[in-house]
């Protein structure tokens, strides 16, 4: 079953990916084929099975509430596309 183009556009919107109109039909094909593959696991009987989120039974470690990081704003902003006076710039959000 082919994924409708409206559904492809909805997913792209959720994923924050701009699609060119000519990309949609290829993605309909690709995503439909991928979904047909992953749907094969619906045949597995998983009644009563606990979902496994993580390979190891680990617990989150706690640490003392102390400052461990120093301010490295200049180093981190050196790789930012647009900054000004220590702030990240984005297009105007509020008029």
């Amino acid at each position: 079953m082919l994924l409708p183009s409206a559904e492809v556009n909805r997913i792209a919107q959720l994923a924050r990916l701009h699609l060119q109109p000519e990309e949609v039909s290829g993605l309909q094909q690709d995503l439909s084929a991928m979904l047909a593959l992953v749907r094969q696991m619906q045949a597995v009987d998983t009644q009563g099975v606990q979902p496994m989120a993580h390979p190891l039974a680990m617990v989150q470690r706690l640490r003392t509430d102390q400052v461990t990081e120093q301010n490295q704003r200049a180093a981190y902003q050196a790789v930012a596309p647009q900054v000004d006076e220590g702030l990240y710039l984005v297009p105007r959000v509020v008029e």
Binding site: A15, P81, V90
Partner: peptide, 23 residues
């Protein structure tokens, strides 16, 4: 497209900045 990595030059609002930078 804000903190590091590629940033699109063709976006004039925040949603478009995300979507174009990622595309």
């Amino acid at each position: 497209g804000v903190r590091f990595g590629h940033r699109s030059a063709q976006a004039d609002d925040l949603a478009a900045l995300y979507a174009h930078s990622r595309a």
